[in-house]
Write a protein that binds this DNA or RNA. Sequence first.
DNA 1: ACAGCGTTGTCAACAGTGTTGCGCGAACTC
DNA 2: GAGTTCGCGCAACACTGTTGACAACGCTGT
Lengths: 231, 231
Amino acid sequence: MSKPPVTPARTKRVGAQLTPESIIEASLRIAARGSADAFTVRRLGEELGTDPTAIYRHFRDKDELLLSVADRTLGEVLDSIPDGLDWKGRLRALAAGSLAVALKYPAVSSAMASRTTRRGNEFRVVELILGAVLEAGLDGAEAAVHYRMVGDSLLAYVGQRAAYLLFDPEVRAADESSWSREYRTVDAQGFPHITRLGQQLAEVTHDQIFHARVEALITAIEQRAGALRGA
Amino acid sequence: MSKPPVTPARTKRVGAQLTPESIIEASLRIAARGSADAFTVRRLGEELGTDPTAIYRHFRDKDELLLSVADRTLGEVLDSIPDGLDWKGRLRALAAGSLAVALKYPAVSSAMASRTTRRGNEFRVVELILGAVLEAGLDGAEAAVHYRMVGDSLLAYVGQRAAYLLFDPEVRAADESSWSREYRTVDAQGFPHITRLGQQLAEVTHDQIFHARVEALITAIEQRAGALRGA
DNA sequence: ACAGCGTTGTCAACAGTGTTGCGCGAACTC
DNA sequence: GAGTTCGCGCAACACTGTTGACAACGCTGT
C-alpha cells in the first residue's frame, strides 16, 4: 500500500494558496461584476491577491480556465431545474436557467457561445436534452440532429445576449435607440413594412424574443415527432 | 450656386490614396483569408500599403469600420436572393446566403453576431424578413416579435459558425473529436441516452443542424399564423 | 499667383492583453 | 536531514487598438 500503483499521484501541496477551485470562484466573482471590469488575467490576480501569472501553475492557459469556469456555471443551470417536469417543461426550464446564468456571468457565456466544455456537467446537459427529445417521440439520427439544434441554439441565444451586455454602454445605447430613431425615418416608399410597423418594432422586448425562440424549438420538435408518428 | 448652402461641403481631396471604399475592400480581402491571419489594424495597413493608423482618418475607430464592412457583406447576401420566391423560399434563401457570407468572412460575422449596423443594407434585410412574416399571415406586434426572432436567430447562427472557424485548428479539432472520443466513454449507467445514441451524435453534420434550425423558424411562424387564423 | 488652411499619411508612443522563462524559497519524499 | 519538486513572484515579450505631434500635399479664396 505504500507504493502508488503507476503514477506517483503528484501529491499536491497542502499549503498552496491557490487551488483550481479558488481560481474558478474568483473568476466567477469577476465575471459577475459584468462589463464594469473585464475578465482579464491581471484582474484575476488582483482578486486572488497573488501575481497574475500564478494561475498558469493550475491551468494551461486562459482558455482551459474558461472551460472549467463554464462547466461550473452549467452546474448552476442544472441545479435550477426542478424535477417532475415533462419534456417541454424541462426544455423551458433549461432555457430560462441558461439565460439567467448567462446574464449573471456574461463574460463566460459570451466566450463559450461556440465552444464545448467536454467536462462533467456538459454531459448532464446533453443527457437532459436528449431525454427530452426522446420523450417527445424522436429517436436515432432524428433525435441526434434535434438535440444539436436545441443545444447549439440555446448556446447561441444566451451567448448573443451575454455578448451584448459586454459592450460599452454607449454602443448598446446606439443599438437600442436605432429602432426608435433611424428606423422611424426610413423612406416610406422603399420600406413600407418598416414604416408601418415601426412602433411595434420599437416596443419588442428581449424577453418576448427569447420566449419566441424557445417556443420555436419546442414547436419544431413536436411537429417533427407528429409527422414521424403519422407516417 | 457658388456658395454651398450651410456646410462648406468639406471637399474631400481627389488625389487621396485611401478611401472608405478601398479600406472596406481591403478589410474584406483580409477577412476572406480566414483565421490564417487575423483581421487587425496593422495587417490592414499592410494590405493597403500605408501606415496602419491612416485608416483613422476615414473611420472613427475599428468598430465603425466593422459596421461598414458588415453592411457591405449584407449587400452580398441580398444580391444572392433570387426574385419570385414565396415567403418560405425567401427566408431559406436569406439563411443560406447569410451562412455562405459568414463562412466567407468569418471575422466580420463573428464580430457582428450581436450587433446592429444601422446602415442601408440592414434596412433592406429587415424589410425582407418583415415582408415574409406578413405574407405568412402575421401582423402588428406578432409580426414584430417574429421578425426579431428570425433576425436575431439568423445572426446568432451564422455568428456561431463563424466564430467557430476562427479558433485555432487544434481547439477546433478537440471540440469536434469530443463526440467520437469523450462521449463514447461516458458511464453507461448515468448517461444511457448518450451511450445509446453516441454513434448518431458523432455523425451529425453542421449542415443538418443549420437546416433544422432554419426549418424550426419557418415552422414556428407557420404554426403561429395558423393559430391566429383559426381563432 | 499666392497665402492660408484643412486633409491625409507617417512616426513614435501608450495602455492594455495573454503568455513565458528565470529564480527563490518552502514543502514534500526518502 | 538531504534532495527534489512544486508554487509563486518578477521581468519581459509579442501582440492588440488608439492617440498626438509633425510634415507634406492640394484645394480655396483673394
